[in-house]
Design a binder for these strands. Structure first.
Length: 643
RNA sequence: GCCGACAUAGCUCAGCGGUAGAGCAGCUGUUUCGUAAACAGCAGGUCCUCGGUUCAAAUCCGAGUGUCGGCUCCA
């Protein structure tokens, strides 16, 4: 409902994230790790009936299936190694994920980097031994007794849940499926590679805490993440990719490019340095120009708001803990965590006619949310942020056109950055509020608008909010990582009903408008973070904080440089002069490091002819360009907002 | 919030019980230079904070704060 919400699934996926693939490796459904007896003999008769699986049984079709199988097998091998060091370890689950695998353990003490090295050694030994993976099915009770007997309560819990589920469904209790390699046995549905020797080059990456079954109420286990690939080259490529992502990290580049910083006096809130603020202002000016052209009217509402507004919106009950609350004269106020309720106050400040609609109220709203301390992360997860928010009040018959216009707006804005927006349509959830017919109409209008794009889009059934269907917009950055930025959310009940918004229709009746919440950048903070990483700090010319650096070769060229600077500034272009006594080479180096698009070298020849020698950040050079020609060119490039 | 790691000069980092270090940046001087680092000198630190152990703490221990990697949450 609150568009561009940067805290909501902001980062859809990025390199290094490992939580993504848990869905199909759910503890109940999927490969689950298990306990290992020290030796097959310990396991007793359980092993006597083990049947060797053929390679065909063990593998899914296709190379991807094989890679997943190898990753899952790696998790087993890792668990084996961990059990070798901590025989009392209790095993959680150990699925394959994007780029690798993990396994969760309950251990007697926290793991250290040395432990990881030892575990890797254990894994290498197991791989060298080339144990076969063998599958075995036994009756449920036998399997349960096995894991119970080996002090593996998590495995027993998984089995009990499977049984309960079967009972509920009225089906037979499933047999217990296990895989064994060497002496290690795990509760698991497979598939696996044929033998441990098939496991490719791997590396254990990190240890992290993870709640058992993702519940804060359950114990926290230690999760070891690993990566594994078919070839050494692939492993190295993956590690290189991580390095590249690190190199582009906006938190690192933010310091390097002097854009913003964080300070512990206000955790989760960026301090914008002059260059960052210049970038910010450029983006804000650009979208404001679009909004003016597209019929928005900008408003501004208070940051400090009485709690009764949040009670009315319904958020006090649900999100009070995440709001910054304060008392004054016996009254309770909070910093606003969203803009929408206050926009209704302006909407309702006078009677609205059907002729006024659509009424598009935009606001660069500064929001504060008291996010839990452990969730804060750079610009992508913050406590203070600004949304390029808007609330559109409209008649139901205007919905489709308005959505089309908004999709066009997204294309226009994202085109400035060369970003290709992807749309995800979230439809009516089971718990939806409001009139079914209204939902149907809204959904068909949204669908028609999306269809009119002539481009494929994703549909997530039942992913809409309980009050409205929505379109989420994702972008893919230069490293192929996907980010959630914009949203367009049709609100059928929340603002219209709870705040009792009406307009007077042609018949003089007061009727309900529909509303749309939308944000194009989403959170300016996060959008800038994404841009920094996407461009690795080398912003398009039109929005670069410093578009050009004038580089006088010697001191006698400084006056000329100042003159050129003044001419550029007179055209609103963002330019600096490097008047330090460094050599030209060093000035160029600094400008390159700052990813400045144009370096304008001025020496005797140039001053004489009122030209510049242009070097761009790709290292290409163009000599003898007149000042006027360059100024016009830069002004044109800036106005065009080319990516 | 939870688990773990980390916190030393503006930045990147070394030092890990016995006088606080380097490179870059900064300042001063020399240099005035043609497309990714001129040369020299100087200055720069409550070693995150508070408490404890010790003859002695940047170093060991505890608490707090922040950051990072995850988990959970994300209107």
């Amino acid at each position: 409902m609150f568009p561009g919400d940067p805290t909501a699934s902001g980062r859809v996926a990025r390199i290094g994230d490992r939580e993504m693939d848990m869905g199909d490796n759910d503890a109940i459904q999927a490969p689950v790790g298990a306990a290992a007896p020290a030796t097959p003999e310990d396991a007793g008769p359980f092993f006597e009936t083990v049947v060797r699986g053929s390679a065909e049984e063990l593998l899914d079709a296709g190379a991807h299936g094989e890679l997943d199988a190898m990753r899952h097998s790696s998790a087993h091998v890792m668990a084996e190694a961990v059990m070798g060091i901590f025989p009392e370890a209790q095993l959680g689950i150990g699925p394959a994920i994007d780029d690798g695998f993990y396994y969760d353990f309950l251990l007697p003490r926290p793991l250290t980097p040395d432990d990881l090295a030892a575990i890797e050694d254990g894994m290498r030994a197991s791989i060298a031994a080339d144990h076969l993976f063998v599958r075995k099915e036994v009756p449920f009770e036998e399997g349960r007794a096995f894991f119970a007997g080996r002090n593996q309560p998590f495995k027993v819990e998984i089995l009990d849940d499977l049984a309960a589920k079967a009972k509920e469904a009225g089906t037979a209790v499933p047999r217990t499926s296990t895989y064994q390699h060497g002496s290690f046995v795990d509760l698991c549905k497979g598939p696996h590679v044929a033998s441990t020797g098939k496991i490719g080059p791997f590396k254990l990456m990190t240890v992290a805490g993870a709640y058992w079954r993702g519940s804060e109420k359950r114990p926290m286990l230690q999760r070891i993440y690993g990566t594994v690939w078919s070839t050494q080259d692939e492993l190295e490529a993956y590690l290189t990719r991580l390095e590249e992502a690190k190199r582009r990290d906006h938190r690192r580049l933010g310091v390097q490019l002097d854009l913003f910083s964080f300070h512990d006096v206000s955790p989760g809130s960026a301090f914008w340095h002059p260059k960052g603020q210049r970038l910010w202002r450029t983006l804000e000016t650009a979208i404001r120009e679009v909004q003016d052209r597209r019929g928005y009217q900008e408003i501004s509402t208070p940051m400090l708001v009485h709690k009764k507004l949040w009670e009315q919106s319904g958020h006090w009950a649900n999100y009070q803990d995440s709001m910054f609350v304060m008392e004054s004269e016996g009254q309770t106020f909070s910093l606003k965590p969203m803009n929408c309720p206050e926009s209704t106050i302006i909407y309702k400040s006078r009677l609205r006619s059907y002729r006024d609609l659509p009424l598009r109220l935009s606001e660069f709203g500064r929001l504060h949310r008291n996010e839990r301390s452990g969730t804060l992360s750079g610009l992508t997860r913050v406590r203070h942020f600004v949304q390029d928010d808007a609330h559109i009040y409209l008649r139901p018959d205007q919905l489709q056109d308005e959505i089309k216009a908004l999709l066009g707006e997204v294309y226009e804005v994202y085109g400035w950055f060369g970003l290709d927006p992807k749309f995800t349509f979230g439809t009516r959830p089971d718990k939806a509020l409001g009139d079914q017919a209204l939902w149907d109409t809204a959904e068909s209008q949204i669908k028609a608008a999306l269809d009119s794009l002539g481009k494929p889009y994703r549909i997530k059934p039942k992913d809409g909010a309980f009050y409205a269907p929505k379109i989420d917009i994702q972008i893919e950055d230069a490293l192929g990582r996907e980010w959630q930025t914009a949203t367009i959310q049709v609100d059928l009940v929340m603002l219209p009903e709870r705040f009792d918004c009406t307009y007077i229709d042609e018949n003089g009746e007061a009727v309900r408008p529909m509303t749309i919440h939308r944000a194009i950048y989403g959170s300016l903070e996060r959008f800038i973070g994404v841009l920094v990483e996407h461009f690795a700090g080398a912003f398009p010319v039109w929005c670069a904080p410093v578009q050009a650096v004038v580089i006088p070769i010697a001191d006698r060229h400084i006056d000329g440089a100042r003159e050129l600077e003044a001419l550029l500034k007179a055209r609103q272009l963002r330019v600096e002069v490097d008047s330090s006594d460094s050599r030209m080479q060093n000035k160029i180096r600094l400008a390159q490091e700052q990813k400045v698009p144009y370096m304008l070298v001025l020496g005797d020849r140039e001053i004489e002819a009122r030209t510049v020698a242009i070097r761009n950040r790709a290292g290409e050079q163009e000599n003898g360009v007149t000042w006027d020609a360059f100024i016009d060119r830069l002004a044109e490039e800036t106005a065009a907002r080319r990516p």
